[in-house]
Amino acid sequence: MNIFRFAGDMTHLASVLVLLLKIHTIKSCAGISLKTQELYALVFATRYLDLFTDYISLYNTLMKLIFLGSSFSIVWYIRYHKIVRRSYDKDQDTFRHYFLVLPCLLLALLINEKFTFREVMWTFSLYLEAVAILPQLVLLQRTRNIDNLTGQYVFLLGAYRALYILNWIYRYFTEPHYVHWITWISGLVQTLLYADFFYYYFQSWKNNVKLELPA
């Protein structure tokens, strides 16, 4: 494992921790899209089907369990926790799941490396992860007041994706026969979706003003 991959995983982990901190400690999920969180839960559930069949490393297994556990518990908190759920911006978070899930499923059935259940599910999870942030970005744009933790959460997620791209570039030059178009292209699309957010995030940081996305 190279440094970019490890830094990417740690950034991903940090984003989840920031979100759990907000939900668990402040008892608020204001500005957080339940739709995006549900999509991530679906992403991990379909990608980690190999959890009990293929052992890669203790690190790999632990991280998979953490991402699965945290994504489902975040969904549970926003839906059912009696205090947290009150802060959920239900009326603003209107993105439809199936607009993203159905095209991704269709695309995974058409474009995959091998037409087996596990492989199609794995490909589906890649496509879905690429666009799962969209409901969250739409919600950010609608929310006039983006609090620090929400801004940091989205920033860390975007940073994790950018680091994964560096990881692929590194692996391409250091490992033999390393070509993975499906992963690379969906990963690139995913990272590009953050470009706009990054721009405004750095602007607000540079000018020391509160983060706000233009409508």
Binding site: D9, H12, D54, Y178, H180
Partner: peptide
């Protein structure tokens, strides 16, 4: 490769 190397990623 038995499993594709990309599958060792998260």
């Amino acid at each position: 490769y038995e499993t594709s190397p990309i599958k060792d990623e998260l």
